[in-house]
Design a protein around this nucleic acid. Sequence first.
DNA 1: CCCTTGGGTTTGGGTTGCCAAACAGGTTGA
DNA 2: TCAACCTGTTTGGCAACCCAAACCCAAGGG
Lengths: 183, 183
Amino acid sequence: MIDWREFDHNPVSHSAAHHLTSIQQLLEEQGYARVSDVARKLGITRGSVSVTLKGLRQRGLVVEDDHKHLGLSEEGLRIARGIHTKRILFQSFLSEHLGLPSNLAEQDACKVEHLVSDVTAEALALFLESRSVESKEREAQVHSLEGRIKDGSVDIFPSDRVQTLSSELEKNSSSTHEDNDDE
Amino acid sequence: MIDWREFDHNPVSHSAAHHLTSIQQLLEEQGYARVSDVARKLGITRGSVSVTLKGLRQRGLVVEDDHKHLGLSEEGLRIARGIHTKRILFQSFLSEHLGLPSNLAEQDACKVEHLVSDVTAEALALFLESRSVESKEREAQVHSLEGRIKDGSVDIFPSDRVQTLSSELEKNSSSTHEDNDDE
DNA sequence: CCCTTGGGTTTGGGTTGCCAAACAGGTTGA
DNA sequence: TCAACCTGTTTGGCAACCCAAACCCAAGGG
């Protein structure tokens, strides 16, 4: 097993990710971004934003000009763009290739955007590149499934297939990492 | 925009997810699970596990027999299985279809397993079902990419393509959710 | 019978991140 | 000029989670 606590050893937290992308988005939308604007966009109080941004400023990701106008440092911009890219890639995959309803795709993409590795993002990009959208027919399947899952009238996934996939993964992974079962 | 704080409104937290799946795994491996066993497997102290499990017991996900042996309630088992399934599905997708090295696939799958919706998992299952593994050729591409990303010698993703994908997503989403831009 | 050992719990600390509330400045209308 | 507003900051609370360390208890070994 990989160390499960990697979960919060990310370049930026979920919260920070949204602070950064909000600033970037506000700059594009209205040319400037203030604490209140960010707070409004994120739906949290000015106080919270103020405190969080103080941290991001100390980390050199956010800058502030003489008129309390916020901006991103080069590093901050790089991170914000990376996150935005990952969000788009995942949303696109979930929506176009898995046939998920767009609000769900957006929601799930938003949750994982700051967690996945750069390599994963690149690999997904290559994938999206090569597959054109010939996956429309899956949308119908997924749509009907959506109802049945809510009813609880269908198991989430046949466990024997999980078993199969699981052992396949194990087989292939033996080459890559020295495995001592528990971390 | 979807409410970004959905991030921590999940059925169980990342931490809880691992506590549950650890118990389940220990039961399979050695027939019983105690606080210390879980602590050892997760790499945290007994004290932390004790406290966390107290919460999970109160929520009715974990049970304890007369000999301090832990188990999962029906609900707890359902959740643990769901999470395990999602992990396998994602790991399988990342590894077999995106060609990621298995340790990376495992790591990323571990990060998102408790975040994605059931519908997403089902859709991914259907996807894996229909595509057999004809994606080996992408592995080489990804492998070489991995090195170049670390060197910083390659942008994470061409931004004009992000633009394209982004506007496509917007177009398709207009049918689904009433959009007022900020949340 | 005592003492070591391992398992479980409790407690005080630290971190992140949100809120509410109190404050400090600046702008503007009357 | 004064009051009403809008902005930004600070502070005390709270909730998750983690750790370290102190404790309690039962089981053995000598």
